[in-house]
Design a protein around this nucleic acid. Structure first.
Lengths: 211, 211, 211, 211
DNA sequence: TATGAATGAGTCTTCATTCAT
DNA sequence: AATGAATGAAGACTCATTCAT
């Protein structure tokens, strides 16, 4: 039986399925995502986005009330997609804190490898949101952080994790996953996403003293 | 006699001594640093910077030829200061790869804890530089990366490090230090910089399988 | 039957029919023409032009990509209108070089008398164009110059012209026509355009030794 | 005895002797002349002129009270030099109107050939002067025009000139001399100034019907 | 005499947004 | 749903000029 030589697409999809494919709106979101990720929110003009979506700038306002609304939707979408995947992975993992940690890190890394632009925008461009638009995003972030915290705490209580410093450890684990969005799409070798995730999972186990 | 409970100032200095204290120029740099770190390069206007430096916007041009030149100087300065500190720490460390890794991580973390705004600007705002302005910065980055790479390689050859994946490991170590600039200044507890550095050094040793 | 005493309007039209009357665009062109002719390109601000066209300065950019583009259009338009008139006059003239010279000079003078501002802008402000914008203009100028040259050459070969110096003569003929744009609109007496043209035609015939 | 092969210098002097050679002031005037002639008054900044004169812009104000004062001095200087030369040539000519016309045209052409930049600035940039600064210039212009007018009138009264139209003729004669400043420095052939002047003198005689 | 720094007004152009069509 | 034209505010930058040194 012929095996496919390539297991990941050469170019990652821009938007997750939950947001893709429904016409003009998603064309605008895709345009915004690419440009915000590449140049940043303030370096991208409404006209740039319109051009990338093959329309006039005024037409954007038939779909979004403002430039900020487009960023807000992208940032929220990135957080929702991520949180839902992490949550789902946790539910599939058994009760062992080690399995739970691995589940979190794997899906965390894979999501950032699959949607690097969304990772960049959600993490680095979210600071351009007004407090109002940022609020629901922060809520999700806190839930995600709490989830990792919970797993670490349970591992400590179960005696399988020996943390050096809770805060530093959890920040390090979270950060190294996010950074994947930045460097992995530009990697020189042909490293696969699954291979990458394996490495980070093992790394995480070492960081919590469980390997 | 009462001992001071806090050994580091509550607010870190903005610029390293190498750039501070020489008049108008450094006042402009300090203004740019604060604003670029807080809002980002494109969200900061030349008038904002002038106001923060208590002068008219046109007066900036007596000291810098363009807005980009201010960013370029800050980014370069951040990289130079960082690289020089890392280099100096390496020279003070003994020949043991473990000591060398600890030396690198400690100074890496401490630098980002002491100059968090410079860390943010140097790492996140440098993408707003033109290729010409970015070139010398990239050269320094490559040297710093090579240094960490060298230490890891030597540790592996000496049999004291068991790396899971060289690239992933080095990226994770570098990233977790940089992220300090982001979260540590806003920490809730009264964590000291030295304590933070200790934790990250131990974490790094675990990551390379040497703890 | 009563003859009208005045055959030309007291104030010449600003733009030739080929460019006039089509809405906002030509209102901007007319504003630019008047101001460029009166004050010069660099002494005219985009705001001055907007005010003269009764709009905001930003609105100009819905119709022209830059200030230079407005000048470029005016200069090109002036050259095109002029060249087409000269060409048309030549075609109506018989084969006699004297008739041809008179035809050229008459239309040359009349055009500058009818559209003096366009003459001033096309001839004196064209130096403010970038090489790219100036190229098509230069092409037309060369064609016009070649036409006069051709007529003079033919007259010499036919023995009806005795030139003192070809280059000096053709420059003098061309220049005296262009200068009409400058002094004729401010003439003290009530000199008619037709009368003016008659004088210049006779003058030209003398200059080539054919009178 | 060796004859000089070249009767005119390859590059015409910038300023006439009356203004040259007295230090910083004339260095500034020379810089202004070159730049005003090349780019125009409004396209030349005070900093451009300072750079061309190898000094700081603020230093110009030790020698001239304003940018306009530099233009005013150049324009006045050009007119004075020109008028004095024309006057002197007239005094050397005999009483014959033909000789007088030739004398005027010759010196008119030669002056513009020798100081083309001064000719350009005096004739085309003088419109950028305020009425106050323009007044003495206009006075000289009127005297020069009156002089030509006088010669033409005398020739008519003496029956040696048959004018077609006084105003048109005098404008044409004056204009063709001024235009020399524009085209002659860029001539393709190696035409000498004396040769040029001869041609224009003969042309003028034809124009007045005296050849 | 010369200058570096400073300034307020101005430059052209782009911005996000609105609105009538 | 889409657009061309319009706008007021703002963008980075340059202007001619001033002044203390």
């Amino acid at each position: 039986m012929a095996r496919s030589v390539r297991s990941t697409p050469p170019v990652a999809p821009v938007l997750p399925p939950s947001a893709a494919s429904n016409g003009t709106r998603s064309r605008i979101l895709a345009a915004g995502l690419e440009l915000f990720a590449e140049r940043g929110y303030h370096a991208t003009s409404i006209r740039d986005m319109a051009a990338a979506a093959d329309m006039q700038s005024a037409s954007l306002y038939s779909h979004f009330p403002s430039k900020e609304a487009i960023l807000a939707e992208l940032v929220l979408l990135g957080h929702e997609e991520h949180h839902q995947r992490v949550l789902s992975a946790m539910l599939d993992a058994g009760p062992d804190p080690r399995d739970q940690l691995v589940a979190i890190v794997r899906v965390h890394v894979l999501t950032h490898a699959e949607f690097p632009m969304l990772g960049v925008v959600a993490n680095y461009e979210r600071h351009n949101l007004s407090p109002t638009a940022a609020a629901p995003v922060l809520a999700i972030r806190r839930r995600s952080e709490a989830l990792l915290h919970e797993v670490l705490e349970r591992g400590v209580r179960a005696g399988v994790f020996q943390l050096l410093h809770e805060d530093a450890t959890s920040r390090a684990i979270a950060t190294m996953g996010v950074s994947v969005a930045t460097w992995w799409p530009e990697r020189a070798d042909g490293m696969e996403a699954a291979e990458l995730a394996d490495a980070y999972c093992a790394l995480a186990l070492r960081m919590v003293g469980a390997a």
